[in-house]
Design a protein around this nucleic acid. Sequence first.
DNA 1: ATTCGCAATCTGGTATACCAAAAGAGGTTG
DNA 2: CAACCTCTTTTGGTATACCAGATTGCGAAT
Lengths: 216, 216
Amino acid sequence: MADHSLPEQIAAELRRDILRGKLVPGSPVKERDTALELGVSRTPMREAIRMLAQEGLVVLRPARSPLVADPPFDEVVDQLIVLQALEKLSGDLACKNATDADIAHIVDIAERMEATFYTADRLDSFETDMEFHMAIARASRNRALAETHHAYLARLWRIRYLTSRRRKNRAVVLEQHAKILDALRRRDRQALDGALEDHTGHLADDMRQLFELEET
Amino acid sequence: MADHSLPEQIAAELRRDILRGKLVPGSPVKERDTALELGVSRTPMREAIRMLAQEGLVVLRPARSPLVADPPFDEVVDQLIVLQALEKLSGDLACKNATDADIAHIVDIAERMEATFYTADRLDSFETDMEFHMAIARASRNRALAETHHAYLARLWRIRYLTSRRRKNRAVVLEQHAKILDALRRRDRQALDGALEDHTGHLADDMRQLFELEET
DNA sequence: ATTCGCAATCTGGTATACCAAAAGAGGTTG
DNA sequence: CAACCTCTTTTGGTATACCAGATTGCGAAT
């Protein structure tokens, strides 16, 4: 248990429950009950809840139980817009600052993803996809950027996960990744910018469809 | 005391002490002692320290006292790069989405700042400057963006505060703000982009000078 | 004199007890 | 029958007590 601190473990546990849908969006997360359930005291539970609030997975209310977040479409779009800007900045900086080893690492992830995309568990392949994007952010060699980018990926985790199920043509994703990789290899900032914009744009389209279906 | 919660008040108190230099970068912030000093218990003090850690004003160490942050130049530059990207995105979106009331509010802040810039307490006028930039971010009508932008402003608070002392010509700031306002009024995205880039760029120059002086 | 080791103590992490505010249930009254 | 008031219960906020790991300083042994 030296890995992570107790609050982090609790946060990870709750995060999984939220993303997997065990904790329904809009339902309260009472610190007493939840702490008892997990066999910890309220203090680390409190801290874990604050972490998730910071990530946007729960919303705090003054003097009330925190709620599992259930962001309306507009808010998710807002977050996606920021994510897109962060990815484009990452790409731009990566073209300038990435080492060859950085790029090789990204290629490696992409190849792994391509090889297992149709056979792997959806959750696994989804995590590989996250790794891919995080590796690009890290290749910017800007720690603050990588951290903020990671926070947004985490925040959009659930909704991206849900859209990945609905996506008819998974090949499109692989193709987009290939384009991103190609531009990055050539360190072609403009091409990379376009490829990343395209990638996020498709995600926005998928999200819109998902929300429209949910309306019913 | 309905304004803010106790942890927020404590955080504000500590933040002022850090920014004013009462708490020296690199020195420990012991939660017991500090809590006793402020007449509160450790629980809200803990939370306040976590807030400041999140803002980057203190750094947490496992099983050790938190330290007042003292980030190296490179890290601050990284953060400034992200802040610049967020400001440019804010400006871009604000040109599209800001209401006339939003812009009027920004004008209001700018005028207040201009009127008191030379007479007001430096920390106060600095807070007005922050309000100005935050108002622009909020005018983007993108909550996520405004929040992340705010976090970066807070993170760069100290270093910006220090540079504001060194800046020979405060009039430059007012002039830049005027340019930003003008472009925003005309909803001229390109001009606003340039003005914001210029503003942040100057800040980077000032920062560089500050760090070079500190080296000695 | 130097180094190794042990113990006192300092510090953050965790559990728990207490408090005040707010929500909900139930009864009373118009 | 409905609306309102009150009392109980629930819940987060705060204070405090306890614990375990780490640091440090002193002392003993080489």
